[in-house]
């Protein structure tokens, strides 16, 4: 088989034009998903069944179904309902980007809340008792003791989820979004050269992932500064 280098040279800049959309999907749904995850986490650890159980059901549904199916349900399914089309959310749900961000947010929120819960469970019970003995309220203990330590404990698993989210953004191309993958599919449809194009695309995603790994590595070192004996 032949390998067309010039095609790669031509198409990489075209795919990179979609970087903005890929980044937007990643950053916006990453941040919204993190906020959702914190809400779900607080519901899970509230000790109140009427908050805990709905959060558990939510997490079960979104972890239990493929993200592609979730995207299709939101993009193709929801507009069938008049109530949706008349609601204030319609301007968002009418746009494929809005649908993709919504789906990615809802999905990553479910995963990340469990990652954060793992971090919270890793905070020693003794530290909570020390906080109580000093007279700190539950809220103060959470803010000043649990949250900072749980953040450090959850970080390695969280960075994994961010990388996973980056790759999930490629699914947005299935609902007409021109992210990097969407553009690649268009080029392949024109050139019939899937090997060159998709290999280049894979390398671009890998470089992205490398950047995310480095970023989280730096954050981990910063947050872990108190775990080293040498000061």
């Amino acid at each position: 088989m032949s390998f067309d280098l010039s095609l790669i040279v031509e198409s990489v800049p075209m795919m990179l034009a979609g970087i903005g959309i890929t980044l937007k999907l990643l950053v916006v749904s990453g941040l919204l998903g993190l906020m959702l995850a914190i809400c779900l986490l607080l519901m899970r650890i509230s000790g109140k069944w009427y908050l805990n159980i709905p959060a558990q059901i939510y997490i079960y549904i979104f972890r239990g179904t493929p993200i592609l199916v979730q995207i299709f349900i939101i993009y193709y399914g929801l507009p069938q309902f008049d109530a949706i089309r008349e609601s204030i959310f319609w301007p968002i749900l009418r746009e494929p980007t809005g649908c993709a961000i919504l789906a990615l947010t809802l999905n990553t929120g479910a995963y990340v809340s469990e990652i954060l819960r793992g971090g919270v469970l890793g905070v020693g019970k003794g530290l909570m008792e020390a906080g109580s003995a000093l007279g700190l309220s539950s809220r103060q203990k959470f803010i000043y003791i649990t949250a900072p330590i749980a953040t450090r404990l959850a970080l390695p698993a969280y960075s994994n989820d961010v990388i996973s989210l980056l790759k999930s953004t490629a699914l947005a191309s299935t609902i007409t979004i021109a992210d990097m993958t969407g553009i690649a599919r268009t080029i392949v449809a024109d050139t019939y050269a899937p090997y060159e194009i998709y290999m280049s695309l894979a390398v671009i995603y890998m470089i992205f992932t490398f950047g995310i790994q480095k970023l989280f590595g730096a954050i981990e070192r910063y947050l872990g500064r108190y775990t080293k004996r040498e000061g």
Partner: peptide, 17 residues
Amino acid sequence: RREVGMVFQSFNLFPHM
């Protein structure tokens, strides 16, 4: 709790502070 201080077997200092 305001009147009672406590010292634990495992110290329980806040490690991140």
